[in-house]
Computed example of a mutant assay.
Amino acid sequence: MGLTETLMLLGVVALATYAQTITGFAFGLILMGSAVLLNLAPVAMVAILISILSLFNCFVALYRNYGNLDRQMVVLCSVSGFFTLILGVWALNVLSEHYVHWLQIMLGVAIILSSLMLIFRPSPQTVRSGPGSFLFFGGLSGFMGGMFSTSGPPLVFHFYRQPVAQRVIRDSLLLIFSINSVQRIAVVAWLGDLALDILLIALTAIPVVLGFTWLGRRFPPPVSDHTLRRVAFVLLLLSGLSLCLSALLS
């Protein structure tokens, strides 16, 4: 990567980190969609980068906030997500090698569906869902995490339906995402795909992640959660449509 591409990538990392810190999700969606749309790096490389950087974002965001966690939701989703994550990594490797355009279309569709989940936020249920539902959505999240390192949308949709405080939902999501990242890094390393150049780019981006995570915690934007969701919806929808269109045209 040249200097211009590296600076652009770091800018996208800053935006994605800030969004993740104030909402509890969207880091992988913004970083993956923007990097691929701007042709900064291939999907497989960005997926590894997201896994590494999200760990630092989650660590800073969760520092001294462990009392807000719902341990049952975290355990159920993390366990079921690990097995489907392996399947997602395998699917990414197959598509990256033979079906690049289809991979880009799948990413675009995933981002579009994710943006719709963000804007059409369901009303909380009066009764908490059973363990089986958390295993199912955890597995779906793991597959998306394995393919694109964007495990958030299924869990965000399901968690915000629960009669649980928002701070508990936010911090539980962050911990699940960090566990998902550790699992994905371990799988990729076992496959021998954790290249030195990816690690160097991640090392360069770590200060950006730490800095903008702190800024998100210390200086959240003076707007409502509803407004934030609308902004995220528009940005993600446009990037998803652009990815699909560019893949179809080429």
Rank of each mutant, 00 (worst) to 15 (best):
M1F: 06
M8A: 07
M8V: 12
L9W: 13
G11T: 01
V12F: 04
A16N: 07
T17G: 06
T17S: 03
Q20R: 14
T21H: 05
A26F: 00
F27P: 03
G28S: 01
L31H: 00
G33Q: 07
S34L: 10
L37M: 10
L38W: 04
L38I: 01
N39D: 14
V43A: 04
M45G: 12
V46K: 08
I48L: 15
L49S: 05
I50S: 05
S51L: 13
I52N: 03
C58T: 03
C58M: 10
F59R: 13
L69F: 13
Q72S: 15
M73E: 03
S80D: 09
S80Q: 11
S80W: 05
T84H: 06
V89W: 01
A91K: 02
N93C: 01
S96I: 01
E97H: 05
H98T: 12
W102T: 14
Q104R: 05
M106I: 15
M106A: 13
M106K: 03
I111M: 07
S114L: 07
L118G: 11
I119C: 06
R121T: 12
R121C: 10
P122T: 13
P124T: 10
V127H: 12
G130E: 14
G130T: 13
G132Y: 12
S133I: 14
S141A: 13
F143M: 09
M144R: 02
G145S: 11
G146V: 08
P154N: 11
P154S: 11
V156C: 06
V164R: 15
V164Y: 03
V164S: 05
A165V: 08
Q166Y: 07
R167N: 15
S172K: 10
L173P: 01
L175I: 09
L175K: 05
I179F: 10
R184N: 13
A189L: 10
W190D: 07
W190F: 14
L191T: 03
L194F: 14
I198Y: 04
L199N: 13
L199G: 04
L200S: 09
L203N: 02
T204M: 09
I206M: 08
V209E: 01
G211E: 00
W214I: 09
L215E: 02
G216H: 02
P222D: 08
S224P: 01
D225A: 15
L228P: 01
R229E: 07
A232H: 07
F233M: 12
L235N: 06
L237D: 11
L237K: 11
S239V: 15
S242D: 05
L243V: 11
C244R: 13
L245T: 09
L245P: 09
A247M: 08
L249G: 09
S250E: 11
